[in-house]
Nucleic acid binder design. Structure first.
Lengths: 276, 276
DNA sequence: ACCAAAATAGAATAAATATTCCAAAACTGA
DNA sequence: TCAGTTTTGGAATATTTATTCTATTTTGGT
């Protein structure tokens, strides 16, 4: 009995989530051409709303009729019905987000609203770029290292300091033993680093000396070190067991921090729940 | 000479930006039906990519042919050409952002990647929502107040602390006299508040007592107070001369801060340049 | 109020797009 | 290898959608 048989008929997915579920459900036992469709659609779901059968078929490198059969296997009556689902759900960002942004910028270069628009845009780009560039393996590894630690030491100075603070706050809320090395009073708490602890060090170019030093020191004492930095070639990478990189878009001299905070919080919350 | 006259022919907009410019350029001297088209299109630009002529015409409450003429006045050969612009421009820089986000989420609820996806999404929503909700008047007023101040005092505790820190950092870099009230050592620097200074206070629900108290105190001493908070009805609003609100999307118990930081930085940089 | 010019609505047509169908090819299990 | 079954490609067709055209209405100037 083939896939196009009426007995296989199922109800068409009513939401994008149901669609994805159905897709993963069927993708494994599909003949060659239909499998190609599934793979291509899975990777380009967002283009369904704005493409024709011919476009997608060409992209998947199958004849249009194969794509039609694929739509039917998913439970739709045809391509149009499937497309309707995605056209309904289609919302490019906020309804008039880009209009608004343009209006803000029109306030004139250097005006507060124009600046705000720039910072918003920088933040958004950073976040989107983080989504596409994150290394899942390193992320998992970082979480594992920090979850296994007795006490988590956090260091991040100058512009990385807000991130370090927030991490300390989040860990505190989740009852994870953590210590913020904040350099207040030029006190240096390196002797608080004990075997079995781990260090989460944050710094971006130009890298702050104190952070690099503490990381080396921790490494020397046998602690695991997780780095949160801007590139893999950061000097911090040398003394780290796991290097999380965050592509942050600067505007003017200032860093947006949106992506860095998102990454930091994801790590913190994951560690918090892993320790429960 | 009518609008459909060939002599009015202009080149079709090649980008969404150009499209908007052209739209604002022509919108004011357009006859009734075409004006309706323009208004509707301006308010629903984002749906062009996924609609038919008939859909849009119905939305604008005009016959399809009116919409066709409208497209031509804008410089396109017809609706299809206009639609092509928007279909192409859809998700330009990051074609697989949303796909990627879904994949991250598929790592399983509670997995580090799923958490990251949530935080990224929360941050992005916050930023977009900030763009559409900011009150330009209040923003300008806040910048003006802070620019006129001798010294800018900054307070923000607990989860607002990272923002306060970053503000202090940015002001320092721009040689703006600023003082961070950080509560270290339970020292209370309220006597540093001098006539002619201003206070920038940051707090979100549940509002921190110390911040509210300092704001009242500052108000009592005749200082101007700028509030950065989550809603107009915040208790901080009572003692503030200008209230900047930031719609932050929370994920779980934690606040994204992206929008708050964007707002804070815009204010800081605007103040910095106004003081030059 | 009248005329010329512009704008409009809707029917007619053209083009693009989706869908079906079936003969041929590729499998599958004996 | 062969018969039965599934899968495939592409041509034929149906449907939707875009575009043009023209008779009619509206507008603006005198």
């Amino acid at each position: 009995m083939g896939f196009s048989d009426v007995n296989d008929a199922v109800q068409a997915p009513a939401t994008v989530e149901e669609f994805r579920d159905r897709l993963t459900e069927v993708i494994d036992d599909l003949p060659r051409r239909l499998r190609q469709c599934a793979d291509y659609i899975a990777a380009n779901t967002d283009r369904i709303a704005v493409s024709t059968v011919a476009d997608l078929a060409a992209g998947a490198d199958v004849p249009p009729s194969a794509l039609m059969r694929f739509c039917q296997i998913l439970g739709f009556s045809g391509f149009s019905e499937m497309q309707r689902l995605f056209r309904g759900a289609y919302a490019p960002g906020w309804p008039d987000y880009s209009t608004r942004l343009k209006n803000l910028k029109d306030g004139g270069a250097g005006s507060p609203t124009a600046l705000l628009a720039e910072f918003i845009e920088a933040g958004r780009l950073s976040l989107e770029s983080l989504a596409t560039s994150v290394d899942e393996g390193v992320l998992a590894q970082s979480v594992q290292i920090l979850s296994a630690a007795e006490t988590i030491h956090i260091i991040g100075l100058r512009r990385a300091f807000p991130v370090a603070c927030y991490l300390a706050y989040v860990f505190e809320k989740m009852d994870v033993p953590a210590m913020l090395h904040d350099g207040v009073g030029k006190l240096d708490h390196r002797f608080a680093l004990r075997p079995g602890d781990a260090l989460l060090a944050i710094t971006f170019a130009p890298y702050s000396e104190e952070t690099l030093t503490l990381a080396q020191d921790a490494r020397g004492r046998g602690l695991s070190v997780v780095a949160l930095t801007d590139r893999l070639t950061s000097p911090l990478a040398k003394s780290a067991d796991a290097v999380l990189t965050v592509p942050e878009v600067d505007f003017g001299a200032f860093r947006s921090l949106s992506a860095t905070l998102a990454m930091a919080m994801a790590v913190a919350v994951a560690v918090g729940s892993a320790r429960d």
